[in-house]
Amino acid sequence: MISISNLEKHYGLLHALKSINVSIAPGKITAVLGPNGAGKTTLIKSVLGLVKPDSGTITVDGKKVNGDSGYREIIGYMPQIARYPENLTLQEIVEMICDIRGYGNAKIDLDSDKRLDLDLWKHFGLDKEKDKPFRTLSGGNRQKVSAVLAFLFRPKVLFLDEPSTGLDPVSSSVLKDKILAEKERGTTIILTSHIMSEVQELSDQVVYLLDGQICFEKSVSNLITETGQSTLERAIARKIEGNGQRMSHDTAAAGAGSGIGSGSSESMKVLETGEAVSESLVNEKQKKTETISVQNAVFDFKKLFSNGEGRS
């Protein structure tokens, strides 16, 4: 549905996205996760056309993202923080978006317009708020408006940025039910969240970003069975920790290689080439465990330099 290749983005000196390659399968819920500043928002905004990437290509449903606005007709977006013109009423805001989407500027009947998906409007009970100006709405209600607008046009692709922030438990579960119903309908959904239980509940797969690179891309169930943890949160923590440990092996090895640290000359050799690893495997059985971990390190080096392609 969405494919991204070699996407690069710099903000001044900050290298926000480093050659991202990912394709997002249709009809699934994909969670884009990662620590703060990893590039999640930049990635999503690039697909939405809000951020202009330096290089690389993005296609959404076969249409290339190149500054034309047409491809956004099939996209619904629920932003993290939503603001609409302060003095317009809810009804007017919905009408405005319909008008912009080319649904005519007649008064939209928010009870029974067949062209629009009004499930959320009804379930959130926004009908009794519809004549209030936007500035008087509470944070939760503002969030509900964004949710309604994202689902309103039955989009093929939905972007949800921290969807349940600021929502009460009832509304939050209404929204989650709606998200799952949309998935049943075949909508491709991309979601970011800091609440891992929510991600585990909703999403099929996880794309994990770290420092502007894709760290791993896996299905949720695989991730949990592979790491042997009970929750997604633990599984991701274990996974990242594991990567971190292997990283620290790398740095220790690099330290040995450059003559700092206390590594022997053999371990220097094994670090240099893959063959050396097998040599030392044969020759130095007493150092077996150490060598194996070094072999891991060599493997990881390859992974590091292959630009995120060698996802485990």
């Binding site: 956004r72 977006y77 939503a82």
Partner: peptide
């Protein structure tokens, strides 16, 4: 934020 929201719709 309003501009961002509008730009996600098919607007040039």
């Amino acid at each position: 934020e309003y501009i961002e929201m509008l730009l996600c719709h098919p607007i040039k």
